[in-house]
């Protein structure tokens, strides 16, 4: 099976300016991301992982370089096509959840459906269904700050799944959680990839995450250090015994 490329970064840079000082959060990153793969992005804090996620997810514009998504140059697409991609093709799970604090769990989950004009009743029914699947059937009307960190994360996951995306961008999805819930989220993402062919891109420090990834990209100081296939990693670690 030929591997289809869903997203391609070419020489992407991102500069932040803080007064006179310049920070190159990304400094020439090129990478192909294949449809249906499980890609983990590793790197120390501040290496540019979240910045890279924003570019792939059409949330931020590179200073130079291009991002292709589904074969099109993402940032020369008109706004309504970019919005369509964000709404229908990508599910975001943010490092800081980014739930809307004044909206209930259900309202947060139905928002992506409402933004593509699904009828309210249908969205509500579907939202409840998904929340039940992630084990929050009894918390649908709670506000995010009435939920625990793990529950919030599950609301964020439910929201990311709402429109059946082809790509899930998960920025440290297990970062703030205990290992048990972390493992559940890893299982979920893996199952989505294996059974449904959803492309999973995660940023992580979690070694459990590495075990199930197809490829691991190492980023340091805004540069792509190397990309490894899991088989290679296993062989290497095996040979070390």
């Amino acid at each position: 099976m030929a591997r289809e490329i869903i997203a391609r970064a070419t020489d992407v840079t991102r500069r932040y300016r803080l007064g006179a000082e310049e920070v190159w959060a990304l400094n020439g990153v090129s990478m192909d991301i294949y449809e249906g793969e499980y890609l983990s992005i590793m790197g120390p804090s501040g290496s540019g992982k979240s910045t890279f996620f924003n570019m792939i997810g059409a949330l931020d514009v590179p200073t130079s370089g291009t991002i292709e998504f589904m074969g099109a140059d993402l940032f020369s697409l008109p706004e309504d096509k970019q919005a369509w991609i964000r709404c229908n093709q990508i599910g975001y799970i943010f490092q800081t959840f980014n739930l809307i604090m004044v909206m209930s769990a259900l309202e947060n989950v139905t928002l992506p459906m409402i933004l593509r004009d699904e009828p309210q009743e249908q969205a509500d029914a579907r939202g409840k269904e998904i929340l039940e699947m992630v084990g929050l059937g009894h918390r649908v009307h709670h506000l995010p700050d009435q939920l625990s960190g793990g529950q919030r994360q599950r609301v964020a996951i439910a929201r990311s799944l709402a429109n059946s995306p082809r790509v899930i961008l998960a920025d440290e999805p297990t970062g703030n959680l205990d290992s048990k819930i972390g493992q559940e989220i890893i299982d979920l993402l893996k199952k989505l990839q294996v059974e449904q062919g959803v492309t999973i891109i995660t940023a992580t420090h979690d070694s459990k995450m590495l075990e199930i990834s197809d490829r691991i990209a190492w980023i340091r100081d805004g540069k792509l250090e190397r990309i490894e296939n899991r088989e290679d990693v296993e062989i290497k670690s095996g040979s070390m015994h």
Partner: peptide, 30 residues
């Protein structure tokens, strides 16, 4: 276990859509 409870059959992940669509404009009433 979240993973075990997910009913993937109700989702539509393998969307056959191969071209990029245009986001709908929500009607005024909405």
């Amino acid at each position: 276990k979240i993973a075990e409870h997910l009913e993937f059959s109700t989702f539509n992940f393998q969307s056959s859509m191969e071209t990029i669509g245009t986001q709908v404009r929500l009607p005024f009433k909405r």
